[in-house]
């Protein structure tokens, strides 16, 4: 997919996110919008997956360790054709296949259950080891939240993957600088995040604009070429990116309500009509 097409895909993912969350009226919209671009680049260009054969052996896999970004993952999966877009409106409705947090046993295309923060990266390490043993050349991707990086288990996984040079693992930090209770730097600062990952023997790529598909694409392409180390791509993102009132909500965007009027405004903004 060319750059313009990836940008269009990211736009469609954002449309889906807004539709998905506004259908319920409330949800984790900020942290979903911030990763729309990396999801577009992964599914639009880099991931070896087949929506018609979601359990394909040897496929690349994504673990969304920040499991509350489920609606963002469902939005890209629907866009890719794993299931009908109309299903997005069932988010969190009784009996839905689309729960607030990612569930591999409910949603076609979701490779790992996540929601209790800090656990997904360990699972991704396990999957990466499994792929190595199977010699199937899959690449395993994992999206970690910045607030989530306060969990100790993230660093247990980081240490093991770095220590054993698990190089079919590419992780991302959604570094949007905000968490539920406030600014990450005020609550428990991740300062020198790149240096931390380097110290754990990961190859680190700092993406200055983590919402720019071209910069993300470049980082993933470079990351794939690195042999002998796991890779961390730090995405400097904006929480709520693409919808002005969500961006403006800052800390309040972690989980917020979106009414019909706001939905119309959001969709117009995303489509560039405002």
């Amino acid at each position: 997919m060319a750059k313009s097409e990836l940008a269009t895909l990211a736009q469609e993912i954002r449309v889906n996110i807004v539709n998905c969350i506004s259908s319920l009226g409330v949800g984790h919209i900020g942290g979903c919008l911030s990763i729309a671009d990396v999801l577009a680049v992964l599914y639009g260009k880099h991931m070896n997956v087949d929506p018609k054969n979601p359990k394909m052996e040897g496929r690349d896999r994504l673990v969304c360790s920040k499991g509350h970004a489920g609606p963002a993952v469902y939005s890209v999966l629907a866009e890719m054709g794993y299931f009908d877009k109309s299903e997005l409106a069932t988010l969190n409705q009784s009996g839905t296949n689309l729960p607030s947090h990612c569930d591999m046993n409910k949603t076609l295309g979701v490779d790992m259950t996540a929601g209790s923060l800090g656990q997904g990266l360990s699972c991704a390490v396990g999957i990466a080891i499994g792929s190595k043993l199977a010699k199937d050349n899959a690449t395993i991707y994992c999206i970690v939240g910045d607030g989530e990086s306060q969990e100790g288990q993230i660093w247990e996984a980081a240490m093991y993957a770095g220590s054993h040079g698990i190089d079919n693992l590419i992780a991302f930090t959604d570094y949007n600088k905000l968490q539920l209770d406030g600014y990450v730097k005020d609550i428990n600062d991740l300062a020198s995040l790149s240096a931390k990952w380097r110290a754990f023997n990961w190859e680190v790529f700092d993406v200055i604009d983590g919402n720019d598909v071209e910069q993300i694409d470049q980082a993933i392409t470079q990351a794939k070429a690195v042999i002998g180390k796991p890779k961390m791509v730090i995405l400097n993102t904006i929480k709520g990116k693409g919808v002005s009132f969500v961006e403006a909500a800052k800390v309040g965007s972690h989980s917020m309500s979106v009414n019909a009027e706001q939905r119309a405004q959001a969709l117009a903004e995303i489509r560039g009509e405002i």
Binding site: M104, M112, C123, G126, A157, M159, Y160
Partner: peptide, 28 residues
């Protein structure tokens, strides 16, 4: 050596790695 792993003193990570391996068809 490939299938008997020692993750160090990190039981939570051990459980998570095992979960990932299971999702890949292994019996850890």
């Amino acid at each position: 050596p490939d299938r008997a792993l020692n993750v160090g003193i990190a039981e939570a990570n051990m459980a998570g790695i095992a979960a990932g391996l299971s999702s890949y068809g292994y019996i850890p």
